[in-house]
Design a protein around this nucleic acid. Structure first.
Lengths: 215, 215
DNA sequence: CGTTTTGGTGAGTAATCACTCACTAAATAG
DNA sequence: CTATTTAGTGAGTGATTACTCACCAAAACG
């Protein structure tokens, strides 16, 4: 029942809210995402975007007044729609069970999120790059994502700690190790042009043992 | 006995080889590294570099003919001197012991490398960012780093697998999880402006359990 | 129907960029 | 000493950039 929402879905969500977006504007957004992922934001010119979207350069500036607004328009729906939906969906699915094992939790996190990372790897790559380079992006996104984890993931972790299923480390540290393990797979996908999916079972086993409580 | 070589040492090594480099050129390299880390390579202008190094803009181009060469000059000594030294040093220290436990290995990797990451976090940040964005950097560095791991780390891993100290997974997967765990800490340092050092013991415990052989 | 609004165009512009070059200063060589 | 090389300078340059604007076409409105 997990939603497999891609960035395209999110675009359409946002668009549905604001009336339908003309097709050429959608092409501009798609071209921007593709080029930002391939070359990075600041190595991409508005001329290139116009060329790939097959529109005039003026069209690029019709809706978004600056290149920065264009970046925001690409990333914002992902952060404010896609990501929250995914996390909340995960939380409600896990929380409603009476009893959760460590394996349940980790398998759920890894399997769904790995698919998600595979589908949205372009946005993730752009987001990651800009996080490293631009402090303004950092300062906007960190306070938006952090509470999502606090509200949805951390309560589940606490439940598992109480029932002796999970090691008693700070929630943010456990989250760090889970995210880091997935990140390593994403990095591998980018560096070696490798498929992400197949490593699932090993990642689950690794996390399951690494996060087991002290015997 | 681990060498704590910083990028400055590496600069001086390379400089010693090629005769002494004039002080203004060193200032150019230092200013470049600082600005690349703060703003990213392509958001940094040669004018800014000249200003921070307090030299004329022409001086920036005296030794390095293009901005790209300047990036290479900043990254190259790190990859071709600092990194190999570190890895080989680690390997010889570990290999000469008769018997290694999983704990020995992981503690050695984490403790030394964490210090290293802390000291060289600026170069690492630049390197990481450009790896995400520029395929030419990727294609130059991957084949230079991969054999280092194959020659120095993988034999040690194999020994541990044989003696039942380590889970029987492919070497590259084990390396991935170790690197990923450290990367997660680096990411945390960048995102939250947090000190890196303190998390050592938890990272060691996490990896030690996660990489234990199946009971 | 005329009028207004909306989406789209592409030549044009001011600013900025990486990079050059003619030149000076000083060190080194012979 | 002169001659040559090396380090450094900063005004200048052509190319490129993000962005603008006068204009057009068609749809929506009344």
């Amino acid at each position: 029942m997990t939603k497999e929402m891609t960035i395209q879905d999110a675009f359409q969500n946002v668009m549905a809210t604001r009336g339908d977006v003309p097709p050429k504007q959608q092409r501009v957004l798609a071209a921007s995402l593709a080029l930002f992922a391939e070359q990075g934001f600041s190595n991409t010119t508005t001329k290139q975007i116009a060329a790939r979207a097959e529109v005039a350069e003026g069209t690029v500036y019709r809706r978004y007044k600056t290149k920065d607004e264009l970046l925001a328009a690409v990333l914002a729906p992902f952060v404010s729609e896609v990501l929250p939906n995914l996390i909340e969906d995960f939380a409600t699915n896990i929380v409603k069970r009476d009893y959760i094992t460590r394996h349940d939790l980790i398998a759920a996190v890894i399997q769904d999120r790995l698919r998600f990372a595979q589908e949205n790897r372009h946005v993730l790559q752009v987001l990651l790059t800009e996080l490293l380079v631009r402090s303004d992006v950092r300062e906007q996104l960190v306070p938006q994502v952090a509470p999502l984890l606090s509200k949805n993931l951390y309560p589940v972790l606490d439940r598992l700690k109480v029932s002796g299923e999970l090691i008693d480390w700070p929630d943010d540290r456990i989250a760090q190790f889970m995210i880091g393990t997935m990140l390593s797979q994403l990095a591998r996908g980018i560096l070696a042009n490798e498929e992400i999916e197949s490593a699932g079972p090993m990642m689950i086993a690794f996390l399951e043992k690494g996060l087991a409580p002290e015997s």
